Simulated scan of single mutants.
Amino acid sequence: MKLKYFLIGVFTISLLVSCKSKKKLAEKAENIRKEMVIKSSKDTLSNSISNTTAGNSTIKNTTLAYIETFKDAAMNEMRVYEIPASITLAQGILESSSGNSQLTKNSNNHFGIKCHKGWEGGKIYHDDDEKGECFRVYDDPANSFRDHSLFLTSRSRYSKLFKFKKGDYVKWAKGLSEAGYATDRRYPAKLIALIEKYDLHKYDTEVLGKPFEIVPDANTFNHIVIKGDTLYSISRKYGLSVDELKKLNGLNSNDISIGQTLILSE
């Protein structure tokens, strides 16, 4: 009988030790799993940051390549439809992130043109102003450039743009915004900044057969104050708010003077 109780006691102790060992092993395994999850998350974040940085660098480095690739298409559209090549290129750079946006890569859509009523071509759905919006798909980038021209020339709200002096990219940039091409209030300033940074207006002058003149301080989009200018009128002209204009120029008041140079883009 004593032997029986002794064996039961040994078995119980062994069972308790075994349970504790299993519990420790389980805890250790769980800790290892958590460490792996944390490490995986850090690696994912690191890769995300690395990819984002690389992506920004790629976009910056490929803008010139984008211009070189599509300048002839933009000039050809200007010859046929009288849309400044500089505007077409600037819109393409801005809307497609120099050809690097996922929408552009997946659809050859360089101008963010949505399906709209009556579109019978290919479609792709992409989050923009709203989730899952319908965008046009093209077999070739050249078709996107042509459809951009047709889009602007076939809609009455853009008709006044074709009355501007040929090659007047400043009025075109402002006119596109006023006609509702984009919801970003700074759209005109962004387009003009791109045009003057990369001298895109030289393609306008080439089409028009005029001599090209480099814009001073082409890397920064500026406005020189003239008589009658106010911060409000200047902000309205370039699609900025008064506060944005003041912040860009470090102004503490609304006072400006004739001849003063105001920066309009970072």
Rank of each mutant, 00 (worst) to 15 (best):
S154Q: 13
T104A: 12
L7H: 00
D43S: 10
D140L: 03
R157V: 10
K123S: 08
G121M: 13
Y125D: 03
E68L: 02
K123R: 14
S253F: 04
D168Y: 01
D72N: 15
I192Q: 09
Y66P: 06
I113S: 09
A73G: 01
S86N: 08
Y81I: 14
G92I: 09
F212S: 05
N222M: 07
N219H: 02
E133K: 11
M78E: 11
I192L: 11
P211M: 08
G55L: 04
K171H: 11
A173R: 07
G92S: 10
W172K: 13
T104S: 09
A26E: 09
Q260D: 08
C115F: 10
I263A: 02
W119T: 10
S101Q: 08
L45P: 02
D168I: 05
R236P: 01
P141C: 07
I124G: 12
T220E: 02
G112L: 05
L25R: 14
I67G: 03
L94R: 03
T230D: 09
L25E: 10
S177W: 14
V10N: 00
K166T: 04
S253D: 06
D147K: 08
Y81D: 11
A65D: 09
I93S: 05
S40P: 02
E95F: 13
T53I: 15
G228K: 14
N100K: 13
Y125R: 13
D128V: 12
S235Y: 06
F11E: 04
D72H: 09
S97D: 10
I214D: 00
I124Q: 08
D140I: 08
Y203S: 05
L103S: 03
T52L: 05
L240A: 12
E130Q: 14
H223A: 07
I83D: 08
S241I: 04
T261Y: 00
V215F: 00
K117E: 11
L248Y: 11
R136D: 09
N249V: 01
L150A: 12
